[in-house]
Design a protein around this nucleic acid. Sequence first.
DNA 1: CCTATATTTAGATAACTGTCTAATTAGATG
DNA 2: CATCTAATTAGACAGTTATCTAAATATAGG
Lengths: 95, 95
Amino acid sequence: MSASNNAFKAIADPARREILRLLRSGEMTAGDLAAHFDMSKPTMSHHFAVLADADLITRRREGQTIWYGLNTTVLQDVLSWMMDLAGAETKGRKK
Amino acid sequence: MSASNNAFKAIADPARREILRLLRSGEMTAGDLAAHFDMSKPTMSHHFAVLADADLITRRREGQTIWYGLNTTVLQDVLSWMMDLAGAETKGRKK
DNA sequence: CCTATATTTAGATAACTGTCTAATTAGATG
DNA sequence: CATCTAATTAGACAGTTATCTAAATATAGG
């Protein structure tokens, strides 16, 4: 429960954040995603693995191609951690 | 504009996230913060530096002691990046 | 000014990370 | 099955990071 450290580490990389951003509009294949970056495919594959390990994306094979999609459930956890923090500016102690 | 990569990298470390969490209720001295962790003071000082560099905390000297506080403005940026992402589950494309 | 307290800076080191090329797996198709 | 396409795994390497101990800085009080 609460966001895993893996999720925070995963979004610490700009390329991985961009991958997530690209997936906002729906699923994309590994190849199409990779085409948006100036990196080798193995490097992209590594980033996919980090994101999948953090449960930030879903993975589905369809024939030769693999489709990746956004998994927002973990993002919600990260989000709520952050909202708890960002909402603290009033210094109102909680609990 | 938009959250710096430094902020994302800063919150990727569990100890630093815990520091931020401790600061929710108001300022604390470097020593009091360090007392909450099983780490050397130089190590804690390093984490303070990373957080300050990302503009996630404020720093103020008062006599011998240094007070750290939460700076929520950068957190808001990180937050909005994440909300944009997490709110995308409907697949409604934006712009 | 000497000493005590609070904190940081310096320097070293082990572990981790992002990246690449080469090789491999998996599926489709002639 | 030979081969083409899509993607991953393996292995190497450079750069970064978290951590420590030792030393330095800064301030306060005799």
